[in-house]
Amino acid sequence: MSKKEEIINKVAQDKLDFNLGIQLLAEDLEYDFEELFMTLKNYIFNAIPEKIYYNTENYQKSINTIPLKPTYTPIVILKHFPTRIAFSKLAKLPQNENIKVITSLLWIFKVIDTERRNTECKNGCGHFWHSLQ
């Protein structure tokens, strides 16, 4: 597991403060928006149980609770477009939106992975990342 993957999973499991996690990801010397975006996208798509539209009640809840202003471009996109289209649009936003995109995606993953750990993985799951220290 890479350093960024460990940070993402520790944030999702409340073993690392969300804001500190964003800071660590953004300040990483090897920071690469496209790589981080793809990692978070894959984590989110894998954590959502409904694999046709990638749209569940929990996913919608995660979007509605992102700790950013609801008028920020990434949030407007996530609320108004189907999941796959929204992610395609997020990847093409200007660079000055990158931190908002990463913040939004990390929050979404945190919420949906918490739900997965509390339901699907409640009695053990074998996901090695769910046993981070």
Rank of each mutant, 00 (worst) to 15 (best):
Q23W: 04
E30W: 13
H130G: 06
A12M: 10
F33G: 15
E30T: 11
K15H: 11
I85G: 05
E97H: 09
T73W: 05
N96G: 00
Q133S: 15
Q95K: 06
V111C: 06
I77P: 09
A47C: 14
N19P: 00
Y59G: 02
G126M: 00
N55F: 12
S104C: 02
Q23D: 15
N64M: 06
F37A: 13
P67A: 06
L16W: 09
Y72N: 08
N98P: 01
P70L: 01
P49L: 02
R117F: 03
N55L: 07
L106V: 03
G126P: 07
W107T: 03
F45C: 03
G21M: 15
F37K: 04
N42M: 02
E30F: 15
N64K: 12
I8V: 14
T39A: 13
E6T: 05
L132E: 09
G21A: 14
V76T: 12
E35R: 12
I75T: 09
Y53L: 05
K15R: 14
L36Y: 04
L24I: 12
K51N: 07
I102W: 15
K4W: 08
N19Y: 15
Q133E: 11
T39C: 07
P94T: 01
L106F: 05
E27V: 07
Q95H: 05
Q60G: 00
F128H: 05
N98F: 14
K3T: 11
D14M: 08
